[in-house]
């Protein structure tokens, strides 16, 4: 009789273990993507500081332009981001004189500051590129793609989020949402298209 109770106890224990394992396993299966919510248009981006590719600490207040700031999430290895190198540099040059600063942000965990620096030198990117360890800024903005631009007006309010233009290779550009947003902002007009999906590589988060 005693042996039987031992067996019953054993059985109950096994059932319990299996049940717990199943519940744990089930909870681990999230069906929603682990992408942070995108920062809403009109939100203010708070002050932050991050190291640049040289390891020097930079902050939003030290980098922002008098008339606005463009963050572009970039990558060392993404072919789409790389296809935009020249266009990003041109954008930075064109708008610097008009009081808007372009700032690159690299949030890819697998691309260290040295790689970012070497890549910028090779591709003649002269605008500052921040390294975003732990994807702090990427999470805050809800950034998932490279290349993708975020336009802040003079008071750091988000007025545009999305692609640079519609053509990866640059040979069939028919939409230039980023430049349109900057032009509208410079003349004090509302941005007509505030969000344009950016096609490209996933940001590899830490």
């Amino acid at each position: 009789m005693r042996k039987q109770s031992v067996i019953s106890l054993l059985l109950a224990a096994i059932f319990a273990i299996v049940a717990v394992a199943n519940v744990t396993n089930h909870n681990a299966r999230a069906t929603t993507p682990d992408v942070p919510a995108a920062l809403a248009i009109g939100s203010t981006v708070p002050e932050f500081s991050l190291p640049d590719a040289d390891g020097k600490t930079q902050s939003l207040s030290s980098l922002k332009g008098k008339n606005g700031t463009v963050f572009i999430f970039v990558a060392v290895q993404c072919p789409v981001s790389n296809a935009y190198n020249e266009r990003m540099e041109k954008l930075a040059q064109d708008y610097k004189a008009r009081g808007i600063n372009v700032v690159g942000i690299n949030s890819n965990v697998a691309e260290p500051a040295e790689a970012v620096k070497a890549h910028a030198t090779t591709n003649k990117l002269t605008f500052p590129i921040l390294k975003d360890p732990g994807n702090k800024i990427a999470d805050q903005l809800g950034a998932t793609v490279t290349p993708e631009a975020y336009v802040l007006d003079a008071s750091n309010k988000l007025i545009y989020r999305g692609r640079i233009d519609n053509s990866r290779k640059g040979d069939s550009i028919t939409a230039t949402e980023l430049r349109d947003a900057l032009e509208a902002s410079l003349v004090g007009k509302p941005v007509s298209k505030e969000i344009a999906a950016a096609f490209g590589c996933s940001i590899k988060r830490a």
Partner: peptide, 20 residues
């Protein structure tokens, strides 16, 4: 598609366009 954006939006409005 010359412009991938409408397709991305059509598939899912929450898709930013990152691959995969």
């Amino acid at each position: 598609a010359a412009d991938p954006e409408p397709s991305i939006k059509m598939v899912d409005p929450t898709w930013g366009g990152a691959l995969p």
